[in-house]
Amino acid sequence: MKTTDIKLKTSLLGLFVATTLLSGCGNDDDDVVVAPAPPVVVMQTFTVTVTNLTANQPMSPMILAAHSAEASLWQAGEKASVAIEKMAEGGDTADIAALAVIESSVNGTGMLMPGMSETLTLTLAQADVANISLATMLVNTNDAFTGINSYHIAEMEVDRPQMMKYMAYDAGTEANSEAKGTMPGPADGGEGFHAARDDVDFVHIHPGVITMYDGLADSVLMPSHRFDNPVIAVTITRTE
């Protein structure tokens, strides 16, 4: 046999072995599990603009909160929670933000003065979009508050604002004495939250303040502090 033939056969044998080995290695690739890409999180942004419609009732820094559709912050005719009591008597919203049902929340920058507006923004994952609530105290009162109670936002369209007005509620936790030292607002500068409850102990529509000029001799309020319903105007917009 010629040397050339031996070299050719050896080369062909080497090529066959290499091809076989490469074919065997191909099975390892079949065992590799490729993890699926994580789902894209779709975000939605909502703005809530609140206008104070009263003549002389500043409102405490607001809280805007997102939560499940089944939750609500208060119910007329039912006992106020301690979280609502603290907000309605002293403007403190920390306990509302800490409620287990709250998914996300944002606070206003300061008191909302009469005739003024403030816009709050919430950005939520689409899976968490359900209902929103808002709460604020009328600070020249004993325990008046107002807000949005569980408004459904899940089906809102982009740039289609919803405009509403809301009334004032009485938390029913503190008697409406309007006496000096019992209200935290600038008309008095008195006490805010007090744990003892000395009123009807259920939430109801607020009857308004009486003032010293209406015959309530111990009241420190003036006619400008009176209010009628509604007390706030609200515009809710999905912007994204």
Rank of each mutant, 00 (worst) to 15 (best):
T4S: 15
D170T: 06
S104T: 12
D201E: 13
G189K: 01
I232A: 06
V32D: 00
Y213S: 13
S60E: 00
E103T: 15
K86C: 06
A88Y: 03
F16V: 14
V17A: 13
P223L: 05
E78C: 06
S72K: 12
G115S: 04
N176G: 15
A168M: 10
N107D: 09
G14Q: 04
D31I: 15
G190L: 05
F202C: 11
E85H: 15
T3N: 12
T20R: 04
N149G: 06
G14S: 12
T146I: 07
V200P: 00
T93P: 04
F202D: 10
M43N: 13
L22T: 11
F193D: 01
V48F: 04
P114Y: 05
M156L: 14
K2A: 14
Y151T: 13
S150R: 08
Y169H: 14
N140T: 01
I210W: 06
I6F: 08
R160L: 13
A100L: 09
M156A: 06
T19V: 15
M43G: 07
I153H: 02
F227T: 06
G110A: 15
E240S: 14
V106Y: 08
D5A: 15
A125E: 12
S224G: 09
I6Y: 08
A88G: 01
A55M: 10
D29S: 13
Y166E: 10
A127G: 05
P230Q: 07
I6C: 05
A195N: 07
D159G: 07
N149S: 06
W74F: 14
Q162N: 11
V101R: 08
N176C: 14
Y166I: 04
T211D: 11
G192Y: 00
I102Q: 02
A97N: 02
P36F: 01
G26Y: 11
N52F: 07
V41A: 11
M222E: 14
S60K: 00
D159M: 13
A217Y: 09
A100R: 10
P184Q: 00
D92H: 04
A71D: 09
D218M: 15
D188G: 05
L221T: 03
A168F: 02
I148W: 04
A168P: 00
A88M: 00
L73N: 09
A83D: 01
H204T: 13
G24R: 00
A171T: 03
I205K: 11
Q162S: 12
T235H: 03
L124D: 07
T93C: 10
E85G: 09
I205M: 13
N56A: 15
C25R: 09
F46N: 02
L120A: 07
S81Y: 04
E78D: 10
M137R: 12
H194K: 13
V203A: 06
P184F: 01
V32F: 05
D198F: 01
T141W: 01
A179I: 07
P38Y: 02
D199N: 13
S72Y: 09
A66D: 06
V200H: 08
T173Y: 02
A65Q: 11
V200A: 12
T141V: 01
S117E: 12
P61R: 03
A196G: 07
S150V: 04
T10A: 15
D170H: 08
E89C: 15
Y169A: 14
G91N: 05
A135P: 05
R197W: 11
E174V: 15
N131I: 05
